[in-house]
């Protein structure tokens, strides 16, 4: 019966969608370099770097994100650090994700078989070149699917930032509900919006996966072959010893 008012307030909800997407994008953008830094730190031959990275990872993984948000927004000002709600939200979510994702990065980098590194040593290749041109192109395609996972999780994780007064999607939905009292409609719409966003994001990740594979020089299966019903040829290794 209040269905009409839900659609009237759709533009208001869309404002929340923009904020949600903004925080998701910024937090993931922060998480990416953080995860690489932490992963490389943990793999470093320099012990203090390993300890430091390990401490940061355990700190963010081991404490509640809600409490971290409160700290960033309500406690840091006592130490003279004033963050805007957006900055606090992005910082906490980004560092959180960066800590979790650093383990994915580390595992992917370690998954490159020893023979590749040995070849690089035997060819006297500079260390940075080895990382950039040999390790990374082989490790990156492995990281993309879990990164997509993390991005979709982040999308829903952003609801947490409503605790520091950010008017993202779920915050605005809550306001509408308490003012208009139309829970079922509004949360139905919000559910649909989150779902649409997540699906859109998954498609983006799929495209990113193909782009990364192409950049890394991996074979990308053409779309037509992927959708055809023709049985694909047996993998080559099936005939090898």
């Amino acid at each position: 019966m209040a269905g009409e008012s839900t659609f009237v307030y759709l533009p208001y909800l869309m404002g929340g969608v923009v904020t949600t997407l903004q925080i998701t994008a910024l937090a993931m953008l922060l998480a990416l370099p953080v995860s690489f830094l932490l992963a490389l730190g943990r793999m470093s031959s320099f012990a203090p770097a390993r300890w430091g990275a390990g401490f940061v990872i355990e700190l963010f993984r081991g404490t509640s994100a809600v409490v971290q948000l409160f700290w960033a927004f309500y406690v840091l000002p006592f130490f003279g650090v004033e963050l805007s709600p957006l900055a606090a939200g992005v910082l906490v979510l980004g560092l959180n994700e960066g800590s979790y994702f650093s383990e994915v990065v580390r595992a992917s980098l370690k998954s490159i078989v020893a023979g590749q590194r040995e070849a690089a040593v035997a060819l006297h290749l500079p260390r940075f070149y080895t990382f950039r041109r040999i390790v990374l192109p082989q490790a990156l395609p492995i990281m993309v699917p879990p990164f997509g996972n993390a991005a979709v999780l982040m999308l829903k994780f952003t609801a947490l930032t409503s605790l520091v007064t950010i008017q993202e999607l779920s915050f605005r939905a809550g306001l509408l509900r308490s003012n208009l009292g139309v829970s079922s409609d509004i949360y139905g719409v919000v559910l649909a919006i989150y779902f649409a966003l997540a699906v859109g994001m998954a498609s983006l990740v799929w495209l990113a996966e193909r782009a990364v594979n192409r950049w890394a020089g991996r074979e990308v299966i053409p779309w037509r072959e992927l959708t055809s019903r023709r049985a694909s040829p047996a993998p080559k290794w099936a005939f090898r010893r």
Binding site: G115, Q116, E118, A119, A122, L123, H124, I134, P137, Q138, A216, G217, R218
Partner: peptide, 19 residues
């Protein structure tokens, strides 16, 4: 690194860069 620069090695498993 500098001394072993004049040495080359070929491995049993080739270890070519697949990409």
């Amino acid at each position: 690194r500098q001394v072993r620069r004049c040495v080359g090695m070929v491995f049993q498993q080739f270890n070519l860069f697949p990409h």
